[in-house]
Simulated assay, not measured.
Amino acid sequence: MAAAKTARGRIAPLAEEDTLSLGERAYRRLRESIVQGVLPAGHKISERSLAVELGISAQPVREALRRLEQDGMVVTLPRRGTVVAEVGPAQLGELGRIRAALEGVATALAAERMDAGSIAAIAAILKRMQAGTEARDTDALDEANEEFHALIHRATGNLFLMRSLGSLRAYDNLGRHRAVGSTPRDLPKALAEHKGIVAALKKRDPALAEARMRHHVLRSLVTNGVLPPPPRKERRT
Rank of each mutant, 00 (worst) to 15 (best):
73 M>Q: 11
113 R>S: 05
212 R>T: 11
198 V>L: 00
25 R>P: 03
156 T>E: 06
88 G>R: 12
77 L>Y: 05
9 G>S: 01
176 R>F: 02
85 A>T: 10
1 M>G: 07
46 S>P: 05
151 L>W: 00
51 A>L: 02
8 R>T: 15
234 E>I: 03
227 L>H: 13
52 V>Y: 08
38 V>M: 14
68 L>D: 02
189 K>M: 07
197 I>Y: 07
5 K>M: 01
183 T>S: 12
185 R>Y: 00
191 L>T: 02
208 L>T: 13
141 L>E: 09
81 G>M: 04
151 L>S: 01
160 F>M: 11
98 I>P: 04
3 A>R: 13
104 G>Y: 02
48 R>H: 03
11 I>F: 03
168 L>Q: 02
61 V>Y: 02
157 G>C: 08
125 I>L: 14
72 G>K: 02
112 E>Y: 05
180 V>C: 12
79 R>N: 10
232 R>C: 08
165 L>A: 03
27 Y>E: 08
82 T>Y: 00
30 L>V: 00
197 I>L: 05
113 R>Y: 11
19 T>K: 09
49 S>Q: 10
117 G>C: 04
120 A>Q: 12
49 S>F: 02
222 V>C: 09
35 V>H: 08
215 H>C: 13
67 R>M: 14
11 I>A: 05
200 A>D: 01
113 R>P: 00
230 P>W: 01
190 A>I: 13
212 R>E: 10
23 G>L: 11
118 S>A: 15
48 R>D: 09
11 I>G: 01
232 R>M: 11
126 L>R: 03
206 P>D: 03
2 A>Q: 14
150 A>N: 07
76 T>V: 07
225 G>F: 07
47 E>W: 04
27 Y>Q: 00
172 D>K: 14
91 Q>R: 14
94 E>N: 10
